[in-house]
């Protein structure tokens, strides 16, 4: 009886130590991550998983992380860039994920906002962004199809600094 009691006490103490170490690791990570409050208590729904849909259009993507808060889904996408700016490109990307998730998981509700996680030398920050509507994504898809069929002339970017780093800057003008 004594041996059993000692074993149980030993296992309990050992488990508590392991649990404490794991919890403190998580605390440290959460502190470094600077996570928004709603994501701390959320559950991880998927991470780096391929998703696709055929309706309303044939779309696919690899969302970095999708968190579940009760029946709602929140999309998070990581960017590692020097500036802490969120570009329209980032918003389009997670809006496409939202369209796919809405079609794939009909019982879940995808929130109309998401987070862009920016990881750079300044640390990690989460930027809350409003997602585009499904119609806007459909319009973008249809425009892409039009360009694929060469039915339309492609527009150039309005952001001039981008042209300086573009690999096509010499070929771009006559196009």
């Amino acid at each position: 009886m004594k041996i059993i009691a000692i074993t149980i006490i030993f296992i309990t103490l050992f488990s508590y130590c392991v649990w404490y170490i794991l919890k403190s690791n998580k605390r440290e990570w959460l502190k470094k991550e600077n996570l928004p409050k709603e994501l701390i208590k959320a559950k991880l729904f998927m991470s780096e998983k391929y998703i696709s849909c055929t309706s309303p259009r044939r779309l696919c993507g690899f969302p970095d992380q999708v968190f579940a808060v009760s029946k709602d889904l929140i999309i998070v996408d990581t960017k590692s860039r020097d500036s802490n700016i969120v570009y329209k490109k980032d918003i389009v990307q997670i809006s496409v994920y939202a369209v796919i998730l809405r079609k794939k998981y009909k019982r879940k509700r995808v929130r109309d906002y998401g987070y862009i996680r920016i990881d750079n030398y300044r640390g990690i920050s989460y930027k809350k962004v409003e997602l585009l509507s499904e119609d806007e994504i459909i319009n973008l898809y249809d425009r892409n199809e039009q360009l694929k069929k060469f039915n339309s002339t492609a527009n150039k970017t309005n952001i001039k600094p981008l042209c300086k780093t573009c690999v096509y800057q010499k070929k771009c003008f006559p196009y």
Binding site: L59, Y87, K88, K89, D90, V92, Q93, V96, I137, L140, Y141, R143, N144, L147, A154, N155, K156, T157, I159, L162, C166, Y168, C172, Y175
Partner: peptide, 9 residues
């Protein structure tokens, strides 16, 4: 689609 929103060309 994200790239398209930056520069179609």
């Amino acid at each position: 689609l994200a790239d398209l929103s930056v520069c179609e060309t």
